[in-house]
Design a protein around this nucleic acid. Sequence first.
RNA 1: GGGCGCGUGGCUCAGCUUGGAUAGAGCACCGGGUUCCUAACCCGGCUGUCGAGGGUUCAAAUCCCUCCGCGCCCGCCA
Length: 599
Amino acid sequence: MAKPDSERGPVSPDPWTPILEELVDGLEASARRIGLGAERAVLASLLDLEGGPQGDVALPVHRLAGPAGRPPAELAAELARSWAPIRSIEDVRADGAFVNFRISTLRLAQETLERIAARRGRYGGQDGPGPRTIVEHTSANPTGPLHVGRVRNGVIGDTVARVARAMGESVTTQYYVDDLGRQAAMITWIWSKPPDQWPPEIAAAALIPEPAVRRDDAYYGRPYPFVSAYLKDHPDAQAELADLVQRIEEGHGPSLHRELAEKILAGMLATLARINVRFDTFVWESSLLTDGSVDAVLRRLNELPSSLTEENGARALDLSRYGLPKESSRVVYQRGNGTSLYITRDVAYHLKKMRSADRVIDVLGQDHRLHARTLNAFFEELGEEHRPIFIIYQDILAHAGGRMSTRGGSAVWLDQLLDDAVERARGEVRDRWESLEAAEVDRIAEAVGTGAVRFHILRVAPEKPVPFDWEQALSFEGRSGPFVQYSYARAGSILRKSEATEFFVGYDPARYTSESEQALIRVLARLPRVLRGVLRTNHVQNLAGYAHDLADEFNRFYHAVPVLTSGAERPSRLTLVAAAHQVLGNVLDLMGIERLERM
RNA sequence: GGGCGCGUGGCUCAGCUUGGAUAGAGCACCGGGUUCCUAACCCGGCUGUCGAGGGUUCAAAUCCCUCCGCGCCCGCCA
C-alpha cells in the first residue's frame, strides 16, 4: 500500500522527482565505484527522461567516455555492471553506448496514484504563489464578428493562461480594446448617420440578410467593409473621418462611439465564450490617454538622445542600431499635431503591464512581428529591463477545399465554423443516444463540436501556418478533442457502474502486472513534466499531444483488461480508472474543453 | 529589395529552444475485432532523399552557412 507523504518530508507534486533522486544517487555511486569522477549535476543533466526503446530513462555515456578516455560501450557496460540495485529501479542494462533504466512500476504506481488521489484537480500543476502573470490575447478591434483567423489567438492565449494558473502563477487575462483610431471610428462615422441617408454603396450592406439570432457584432459590423471601400475614393468622407478620429482621441468623441464598441465587443465575446475563452480584464486604449500614461511616455521619449524631430514637428525614434529593416529604423511616435500613434500607446500599455506583473505574455499574429521587435527596441531605449514574452502565431490560410470560398474567399466567421461543428456533432450524438432529451443532445453537441475546434487549434505549433481544412477542423476521430472527451466519458461510465463511493482505497500497486496497466501508469506520471515544459516554452501543442497519448493509453487498457468483472484485481483497476478519469478531466480543463459524463 | 517565420510518409502534424540508439502520431488505404465496462474505440499491415547543398561533431530532423519554395511585415494606419 502507498505510504503517506508525511513520512518523507516535503513532497514534490511530480511522482518522478523522488524516483529520479534515487536514480541519480545510484548513478553517482556507480560512477564512483568504477573510478569515474562525474559530478552529480552533470550526470543528472545527461539523462534522457523520455527514455529510449529499452527503458524509461536513458544515459548516453559519450560525453563521459571522452574525458575518461574509455570507449563508450565499455563505459556503459561498466556502469551497468557496478550498479547496486535500489527499489526505484527494477532493471539496468547497457546497450551500446547507452545505459537504460527501467523504473519500478510498483514504485511509480505508488508515487503517481498517491499524488493523483491527494491533489485531484491540481494534479499535474504546482502550488503557488508563483509569479504574477498577465496574458494578453485576442484583442481584436471591435468592428464586427470574429473571423476564423482570430480563433487561434484566443485558444492559444486562453490555454497558456490556464496552464500558467495551474502551475501556481497568479494570472490575469487581458483584452486590449482598440477604441481609438480609424477602424473603430469608421463604425461610428456610418452609424452616426441614419441608415436611410447612407451612401448607396454602403446601404447595400443593409441588404445582407440578418442572421436568425441578431447579434450586435454582426449587426453593427455589417457596413464596415463597405465603408472601408467607400472611403478610398471619397475625400470628403475621409475628411469627416479624420475629424472624428481627432475628436475621439481628444476625448470629445460622441458617446455613440463607446456604445457601439461595447455592443460589438459583447457580440464577439459571446462567440469566444462558446469555446470557453473569457477575460479577467479589458483595457480600453482610450484609458491610456485619459489616465496620463501616454503623456508620460511621450515625455520620456522626447528626452531620449535618439529622439528626432521631423520636418513638420513630428517626433521619431532612431532605432537604426537594432537591425530592423531599413525603413523601420526611424519610427514616428508622435504626429506633427502632437497626438500619439498606435506604437506609442502600446508602449504605454506594456509599461503598465510590466509594472504590475512579473511575466507579460502577448499572443500576436505574425503581421505583428515587426511591431513586437519595435516595441522591444523602444523598451531598450527607455532603459526598461523587463521584456514581454511574445507568442507569435501564423495565420490560418484561407484556401482549402469545400465551403471556405463563400463570399469571395476570405470571410468564414468563427460562429459559422462552430455552428457547423456542433451540427455535425448533433448527428453523432443522436445516432448513439436515441432517447435522449433534446436539451441534453444540444448540450453534448455544443461541447463536442466546440471541443473539436479547440483541440484542432491546439495541436499545431503556433508558428506553423495552418491551411483551413474544414474536414480536419471538424474531425471527431483519432487525434481530436472528442477522442479525449470520449475517453473521459468512458472512464466515468465504468466508475458509475462500479457503484463505488471511493476509488483510491484498497488498491495494491503490485497488481499492475499487465503491459497496458503499466503503460497507463507511465503516461499518468508524465503530466507534471509536460506542464512544466508547456509553461516554459508556451508550446501548447504538447498539451494536446499529451492528452491524445493519455486517451490512447486509456483505451488500450480498456480493451486489454476487464475492470468491473476482474475479481481480485477490481479495486486496483478501479483506482487506475479513477486516476485516468481524473487526469483526463484535468487535461480537458487545461485545454478549455468540456468534460462530458456521456457522449 | 530587406527583415522575420515556415518547409518532416499521399494528406495534416509532433519531435528542433537543451544534438544521441532503427524519426513518432492521426487521416487516407488494406485486413481483422462488438452475446462482454460507450466501436467517437481496439488489433495488424502499408507508406519517409526530415525542401536542396555544404559545414561543425564520436553523433545532425535538431547547431552554422548558402540556395530554393511559400507566408507575413517594411505608414505621421492599427
